[in-house]
């Protein structure tokens, strides 16, 4: 590692389109460090989610490199990428992506099952994470019994339960009202402060932007601006 948690150098991402291809990311070079609370902002189609997917090892660069926790995403095998996600990355999705047949406790417990933690440790960690997001009393509820805000808080608990180094959040407030959005952002901000977890958001929501310490603006797949904000 070169001291940065994430190092992106001259990254390009092409997608096939018809006979040619569409370039979603063009020559991106960025670094992210521990404890950042960073937003990748920009209009739809600017490449935010694509960049987040590459950092999350769900996709790979077409050119250039993305090194996350010392591992080059471009050269990772599927198994190694899964291991990286399992150990070091947490995900928060716009549509929560909770597992519908599991209750709140089981949803949050899921990443710990993959880490093969003992039942005792799992229970302790899950309850701790649920307390963080204020859902300690909803352990037995199914996702369909929860409101949108509660679902997203479960998703946050699931993302942070294993205490990952990086949490990637793709439009986490897009389906939430203003009150719930602020509640969630405050929770994530506190987690960032207290656990030193790096949060990277893909968003175009102004409510999110006001919480960010760093804002990276993408336009047409290129970094248009990279600035520290008032929140920092």
């Amino acid at each position: 590692m070169n001291g940065h948690l994430i190092t992106i150098s001259n990254l390009f991402k092409h997608f096939p389109m018809g006979k040619g291809h569409f370039t979603a990311l063009k020559d991106i070079s960025l670094n992210f460090d521990e404890g950042e609370f960073t937003g990748i902002v920009g209009p739809s189609g600017s490449g935010k989610t694509t960049l987040l997917n590459i950092i999350g090892s769900l996709d790979s660069p077409s050119e250039g490199s993305a090194v996350v926790m010392g591992q080059d995403i471009a050269t990772l095998t599927l198994k190694a990428a899964a291991r990286l996600r399992k150990r070091h990355l947490g995900f928060i999705f716009q549509t929560y992506n909770l597992l519908p047949v599991y209750n709140v406790f089981e949803n949050v417990e899921f990443p710990l099952l993959l880490l093969r933690m003992s039942a005792y440790e799992r229970k302790k960690a899950v309850m701790h994470a649920l307390e963080w997001v204020g859902l300690g009393d909803k352990t037995g509820s199914r996702p369909k019994q929860l409101s949108g805000g509660e679902c997203q808080r479960v998703a946050i608990a699931r993302a942070i339960v294993k205490k990952p180094a990086i949490v990637l959040a793709d439009e986490p407030t897009a389906n939430l009202d203003a009150a719930n959005s602020h509640h969630i952002l405050k929770t994530m901000s506190t987690l960032n402060r207290e656990l030193k977890t790096t949060f990277i958001f893909a968003t175009h929501d102004d409510k999110v932007i006001q919480y960010l310490k760093r804002k990276i603006t993408l336009e047409d797949g290129k970094v248009a601006k990279d600035e520290m904000t008032a929140g920092s």
Binding site: L78, K79, A82, R85, F91, L98, L99, L114
Partner: peptide, 15 residues
């Protein structure tokens, strides 16, 4: 599909 994608994102391998 979404559930499968989520499981993969959370660290499950395809196998």
């Amino acid at each position: 599909q979404k559930e499968i994608g989520t499981q993969m994102a959370l660290g499950m391998t395809r196998t």
